[in-house]
């Protein structure tokens, strides 16, 4: 039983991190109606930014996470202005293909740029809170507890902004109908930039938070990027609550599945397949995902 609860807690912490990253991707899809294939690389950018802020400038670790989010937000806004804005100004005819090629290419460029700039050596930012906490039979790494708390706070903050503020309502309006939003005075281009910046900023925050736990390297974003796609399809494309629920589910399935499903000596080898299996099962029953809309595409 002790092993079971240890796996549940571990799955919850990992699920919260997945949720932080995937909610950014869901936000981008919700407003811009495009899948950001460079999402994992923005996650990596946040981790490197936080690492260098903490180690070179001596910024306290938690503050370095917030500054890294801000940095990635600004990069995201610039990337949107330069590369993605043409999608919404009538300059591009084949929008879906353009968006896929542009974000995919950007991801490859960012990863190779990181390799050239920072080298292949694995790096570790300073711990948020060194040591472990013992809760009954469970031993928990303090960093993971801090990260789980931060991820929860950031997600609650995101839900509050989206649901309770004028900006959040404006984002929702653009997400539902760009033209109608424009008629009531909301600038859809500005909302696009904001959504993209916020979305990649959340990915950057997740990368910065995960750095001390899973370490920092140029390729660190590949797997979380793929998992984010699985999560947002699972939760329903464009739904932030769906992405959060999907992420928590995936965290549990991976953690418990590695030990209790299949052959336990091979469980960890199948870990990455659990998400796809879960996705297939959910889509068979509910093709739009847990909270998805029926028809969502770029107009």
């Amino acid at each position: 039983m002790e092993l079971f609860w240890a796996q549940v807690v571990n799955g919850l912490i990992i699920g919260l991190l997945y949720a932080l990253m995937a909610s950014g991707l869901a936000l981008i899809f919700s407003v811009l109606k495009l899948v950001n294939f460079a999402h994992g690389q923005f996650y990596m950018a946040g981790a490197f930014a936080s690492y260098y802020l903490a180690t070179l400038l001596g910024v306290p670790p938690l503050l370095s996470v917030l500054l890294a989010m801000l940095f990635v937000f600004v990069v995201g806004v610039v990337v949107h202005l330069l590369l993605l804005q043409p999608l919404y100004t009538g300059q591009v005819e084949r929008k879906d293909e353009y968006a896929i090629l542009m974000t995919f290419g950007l991801g490859i460029l960012m990863q190779n740029l990181a390799l050239a700039l920072f080298g292949p050596w694995t790096k570790k930012p300073p711990d948020f809170a060194p040591g472990v906490t013992t809760l009954g039979p469970l031993t928990l790494d303090n960093d993971r507890l801090v990260v789980a708390g931060m991820a929860t706070a950031l997600m609650l903050g995101l839900l509050w902004v989206i649901g309770r503020t004028f900006v959040g309502r404006a984002l929702q309006a653009v997400s539902q109908d760009r033209d109608a939003a424009a008629i009531v005075g909301i600038n859809p281009h500005r909302m696009n930039r904001l959504a993209f910046g916020l979305g990649v900023g959340l990915a950057g925050g997740a990368g910065a938070l995960i750095g001390p736990i899973f370490l920092v390297s140029p390729s660190m974003g590949i797997l979380p990027g793929v998992k984010s796609f699985v999560i947002i399809v699972l939760g329903g494309m464009g739904s932030i609550p769906g992405a959060i629920l999907g992420a928590l589910l995936l965290g549990q399935i991976e953690s418990l599945g590695s030990v209790y499903l299949l052959d336990p000596t091979r469980g960890l080898a199948y870990k990455n397949a659990f998400g796809v299996l879960l996705l297939a099962l959910v889509l068979l029953v509910k093709p739009t995902g847990l909270f998805g809309q029926r028809h969502v595409r770029m107009e």
């Binding site: 092993l3 796996q7 899973f214 370490l215 660190m220 000596t265 469980g267 960890l268 080898a269 870990k271």
Partner: peptide, 22 residues
């Protein structure tokens, strides 16, 4: 002797390490 195979790219080995601990 008990052994477990893993993908090199997996970042979280905790589930298996907890099982080993038991």
């Amino acid at each position: 002797y008990t052994s477990v195979g893993v993908e090199r790219t997996v970042p979280d080995f905790t589930p298996q390490l907890l099982q080993f601990k038991a």
